[in-house]
């Protein structure tokens, strides 16, 4: 709760309520001044389209989380490899991805490479692009987790006669996991939000569906407020989970 600047966590609901009231008051004032005509009926007719998009967004995020974690782990291990070409590949991969905008990667991969190799399925293309993107960040998270393990733990494992594989399996990964979980949760939140960019290559996710509903009904706010709500419903619980995990981190020392 320290992250929220609160001394007593019991007051959290009150603070949240106050914040919501204050912000919605501001919004009402701003909107009132342009005399906006609300028309939720037209948008309500498209509620299943919202839900379908929401489901695709969730599915995108989950598939990408699994694939990007595998990629991230692979890149992190390659980065620590004794074999130079592995290290070089991992470094080039993470630096290229982290130094270019996701939007550019989506355009380049989808219209460049995927068209060339004949990958037509937009959903699969979306998962691959998001995974490549998030994998670079996850590999750095995992690397930091592994490198944060004290040298003494590794020497202990070696002195007991563990093989390098056993050291990873029984000592490094279980210990790194605890350090990794909070930033990984944060990365998952980013993944959910970043999936909205896939709307530009026509993946039928929440943002694209909201934009389509807007173009059918000409009801901008009625389409985009539920859009924001759709993302908040996914990210807020995860963000609370991340805070919980952060508190539990460490071994009590």
């Amino acid at each position: 709760m320290r992250a929220l600047g609160l001394k007593n966590p019991r007051w959290l609901p009150l603070h949240v309520l106050l914040g919501v009231v204050f912000l919605s008051g501001l919004c009402t004032l701003a909107l009132g001044s342009v005399s906006y005509q609300w028309n939720f009926e037209a948008v309500w007719g498209y509620r299943t389209k919202f839900l379908a998009g929401w489901a695709v967004t969730i599915l995108l995020a989950i598939c990408s989380l699994v694939l990007s974690t595998c990629l991230g782990l692979l890149a992190a291990l390659m980065r620590r490899s004794v074999w130079m070409p592995f290290r070089a590949t991992a470094i080039v991969y993470t630096e290229l991805i982290r130094s270019t905008p996701l939007l550019v990667q989506i355009l380049l991969l989808y219209y460049g490479i995927f068209q060339a190799v004949g990958l037509q399925n937009r959903f699969v293309a979306g998962v691959v692009i998001l995974s490549l993107f998030a994998g670079a960040y996850i590999s750095e998270i995992i690397r930091a987790g592994i490198e944060g393990i004290p040298q003494t733990q590794l020497e202990s494992a070696r002195s007991l006669g563990f093989t390098p594989f056993q050291t990873y399996r029984f000592v490094i990964l279980p210990q790194a996991l605890r350090q990794i979980l909070p930033p990984m949760t944060g990365q998952f939140i980013s993944l959910i939000k970043d999936s909205s960019l896939l709307s530009i290559i026509g993946v039928q996710e929440l943002t694209l569906n909201a934009r389509e509903i807007n173009s059918y009904t000409y009801s901008t706010l009625e389409s985009y407020l539920p859009l924001a709500l759709g993302y908040l419903l996914l990210t807020l619980p995860l963000s609370m989970l991340a805070h919980q995990l952060e508190k539990r981190i460490g071994y009590g020392s």
Binding site: P150, T152, Q153, E155, S156, A157, R158, S159, L160, G161, T163, F170, V171, P174, Q175, R178, Y251
Partner: peptide
């Protein structure tokens, strides 16, 4: 490694696996 498996070693501190 076979040698280490037959030898018991204890260092200054933090020998035990934390987790």
């Amino acid at each position: 490694r076979q040698c280490r498996r037959k030898t018991g070693m204890v260092f200054q501190n933090w020998n035990l696996f934390h987790h």
